[in-house]
Nucleic acid binder design. Sequence first.
DNA 1: CTTTCAGTCTTGTCAGTGACAAGATATACG
DNA 2: CGTATATCTTGTCACTGACAAGACTGAAAG
Lengths: 185, 185
Amino acid sequence: MTRSYHHGDLRRVLTDAALGLIAERGPTAVSLRDLARAAGVSHAAPAHHFGDKAGLFTAIATQGQRLLADALAEELARGPDPRRLGVRYVRFAAEHPSYFEVMFRPDLYHREDPELVAARARTTDLLRTAIPGEGRDADRRMLAAWSVAHGFATLLRSGNLDRLLGGRDAETEFGELAGLLDVLP
Amino acid sequence: MTRSYHHGDLRRVLTDAALGLIAERGPTAVSLRDLARAAGVSHAAPAHHFGDKAGLFTAIATQGQRLLADALAEELARGPDPRRLGVRYVRFAAEHPSYFEVMFRPDLYHREDPELVAARARTTDLLRTAIPGEGRDADRRMLAAWSVAHGFATLLRSGNLDRLLGGRDAETEFGELAGLLDVLP
DNA sequence: CTTTCAGTCTTGTCAGTGACAAGATATACG
DNA sequence: CGTATATCTTGTCACTGACAAGACTGAAAG
């Protein structure tokens, strides 16, 4: 089976390779040309699929939002427990660091991309359903819960908790921590 | 007063110019050569002061940690109220977005730089003093409070709260939100 | 079967970038 | 005065993202 001119699913190959490189060196150190080399295509091939570098990250961020929303939806199917949902959020960040990294770095991608905006809205809406009630107060409780989970995940990823955690498992530690709070009325 | 060969305080001029450029275009879009142009020096002058690009961001992150620690210390002098401290944290992120941006992006700088590590430790220690008590449980409460503030600030900066907040002032909104939680035993 | 055509990928090129080396200049210090 | 050191410059290198123009492929239309 000889290598054909048309690659097959180059777009997917490129995003996958990108995730690998991001995991190794971080998003900013990824070059389109490295990506092309990894996929065995010419240096301009990625540009055709994503427009520019930001287009690549937009695709990755969108994909990440969908994955996160799926994970949250799965957890919500077992009942709207904010604490469990928070743990799932933190676990997503730990299991998919490359996605998480890109998703919350707007300077990397096209923030107004319709698909990305839609995917992000789905995530937000899912989080909202974990807190009962309507109105501004319930919104605030949801935002509080989201902030705790997101803040913990972010501080963890940026290495700010290394000294504080001292080797203990981050996910279970977050579970304990969340148990001390009470986001429900 | 003619332009001398030695610039005077080029290091300071460069970090200040960098903060301006970061505010405009984000940290990744800043180039050492732009910086040099802004300061009216040759393209290799910045490298002499900071070693490499990461060195520049290390200096900025350290400076930012000191500013944040100062702000927290000032607030702590008025009594150890976690909620007020959180508001101050969020305000810092809003008032010094360029610093905040760099501080929590470890891939930009030399994470193991001694001065930076020391400055970060001071910030962490100050946060810790806001929660009374000793031991693991108190640590968790401190971490919870930090996570809420940091998560809120981060989500805000990444544009994830635009739809949710709908134009309301973020800082006061965080105050309300923090009032719904209870991080103290 | 052949023509056309849009989508996919390549080749070639450009200005801009970070890093490094070697040299020039100014200040501090004996 | 002279000499060492910190500061800054000039020159260069490989690499990058973006763009333009062209080549290849598969499929639809005649």
